[in-house]
Amino acid sequence: MKAAILIPVLTGKDAVGADAMAMARVLEAKGIDTRIFCESAENAPMPTWPADELLDFAGGANDLVIHHLAISWPKAREILKRCKGFRVVKYHNVTPAEFFKDYSSQHQAACESGRAELPAMVKLGCELYLGDSTYNIDELRALGVPRDRSGVLAPFHRVEEMVEAEADLELLRALSDGARNFLMVGRLAPNKAYLDLIDAFSACARMLDEPARL
């Protein structure tokens, strides 16, 4: 058996990319020859191969192909159609396009296209569909994915890297001045609801009536 991870863009510090790379490491640790195939890679610590070469590597009846679905990428569906082995779709959710309506027409179009592709991805009848969460897999089940061929697999993470990282003592001292600290972890994007976060922080700061920082 050979295993291929299929993802449009592999980004080193992105949650979807981290999940894909961790999957590759787990499969490799099991003794399975594994490669990541994508269109491009950004700050990724692992080697990648062009998506067009996937079937040459893992196109056999005993091979495994895992597609990480998070945005529009018609090529993935065409590759999965031609696969002869075991096909897995890992669904990370395609962000509803309305979040980007007032911010980025490019992102809006990509999300609209991605969500429009979901029924076709379900109709492929892949051997297994996985979701990051119950919410995500329920979305695919509502489109027709059988319950006995679907399940939840939380994203792999790199917590051990955080545990081993050296503390930023200068930052810790700066944040230990008695003010209450609120931390938000996420990329700066409309669907992360930063405007709602600022409103909530403002309300908390007023109610607490003490120094606070976001």
Score class of each variant (00 low, 15 high):
M46Q: 13
E170C: 02
L175Q: 05
C83G: 12
F57W: 09
E160L: 15
L171E: 10
D56I: 05
K123I: 00
D102H: 12
A193I: 00
L130E: 01
I32P: 04
T34A: 06
K101Y: 13
A41M: 03
F86K: 15
A200G: 09
H92W: 05
A212V: 04
L153R: 11
E78G: 09
E112R: 13
G31F: 12
E117A: 06
M184E: 00
A167H: 03
V122E: 14
A205E: 03
P190W: 04
E210Q: 15
R180K: 08
V145D: 03
A3F: 07
T34C: 10
S113D: 12
V88D: 00
L10N: 06
D14S: 07
G12V: 09
P190K: 02
R141K: 08
L10C: 07
S72Q: 07
P119K: 11
P190H: 03
L27S: 12
T95W: 01
S40N: 10
A70C: 12
L64T: 02
E42W: 14
E39W: 00
C126R: 02
R141V: 14
A41C: 09
M46G: 00
R77H: 06
Q106F: 06
A51C: 11
A61V: 10
A189I: 07
A20T: 07
L195P: 01
R213I: 05
R77A: 08
R82Y: 04
V185L: 12
R77G: 14
N191T: 02
A15E: 01
Y91E: 00
A44M: 06
E53H: 11
L169W: 06
E170M: 02
E210K: 13
L169V: 08
M162A: 15
A22P: 02
L169M: 07
W73A: 15
D138Q: 14
Y129D: 06
A15S: 14
A120D: 10
G144E: 08
L188S: 12
A51P: 02
L172F: 02
V152K: 09
N191H: 13
T34Q: 06
F201D: 02
C38Q: 01
